[in-house]
Design a binder for these strands. Structure first.
Lengths: 153, 153
DNA sequence: TATTGTTATACTCTATAACTATA
DNA sequence: TATAGTTATAGAGTATAACAATA
């Protein structure tokens, strides 16, 4: 009884510690090229976050909803959105049910931009994975697959 | 032979895909409180990156070396450093072997700041881990421990 | 009156250019 | 002449405050 509790706690602690170390490692080794890719595309941090949330949202989002999700000020998001609309990455139309509100939807072009940036991060992660032994890759794949169902897709 | 190759490739692809999804998930769910913590502490992105590299460096670093590691301009790093020095988070002394260069070292206070910010990220990751079943925690811990040796500590 | 969104203004951050000191 | 670092200046980004439109 006590042993099982101890084991459970140890697993949670080990998982947390190792996951923290791994994300930190990936952050340090990939953030440079991420920033470079964003700069090349002329996309700000807030803009890529907006695209990310809009790409994964099932339905159109209001500026307010997006602002709450991202955790940035409404004017800041409004400005970021403005740039994305002008570039044709998203559409912004009045909500017929509440004309104060605007409904934001990602366009195919916006989705391509989002996926290009995502691919940059993926490439950095792929580099890390490729340096592992086959056994390490297997073990990592198994461990991650076990929790894949816990992530929003 | 061919089967083993296919398996190896599949493991790398699965690991990359799942690791990308997991880091994205953690980024979206924890970045808000990270920014909040940094703002509360009055620390900029460049400053926390500087503290991170200095905390993990074995020896003092020059401003140039730090600038190369972070991938930002020398003046930008110089400014960021300036704030950290004034706040007593790091020390900056002339390199006696090359008086053009300044040697940067993290102070105990700077280390505490770094660890407080790190703890914030860890707390977000811990929340994710705590929501998992014991079996999922076990599997994740095993998979991550297998690659722990590949990370700089 | 309250809420959604935009515009006005000020501040922070960072990059390029110019400069100083040392090699 | 080249390099390390700082200071000057400009541009991008974001927050608070003020405003307009709608509920």
């Amino acid at each position: 009884m006590q042993a099982s509790v101890r084991t459970k706690e140890a697993a949670a602690e080990v998982a947390t510690r190792e996951l923290t170390a791994l994300t930190k490692h990936l952050l340090l080794t990939t953030s440079r090229e991420m920033f470079h890719e964003l700069e090349k595309a002329g996309i700000s941090i807030t803009q890529i976050k907006s695209l990310t949330f809009l790409a994964e949202a099932e339905e159109p989002l209001s500026v307010k909803a997006l602002s709450d999700m991202i955790g940035l000020s409404l004017p800041g998001v409004s400005r970021a959105i403005d740039g994305l609309v002008q570039r044709g990455e998203i559409t912004r139309v009045e909500d017929p049910r509440d004309r104060r509100s605007k409904l934001l939807t990602i366009t195919p072009r916006g989705r391509r931009t989002y996926e290009r940036v995502l691919a940059t991060r993926m490439a950095g992660i792929r580099r890390f994975v490729d340096e592992l032994d086959p056994e390490e890759q297997e073990a990592l794949a198994r461990g991650l697959s076990a929790v894949a169902g816990r992530l929003k897709r």
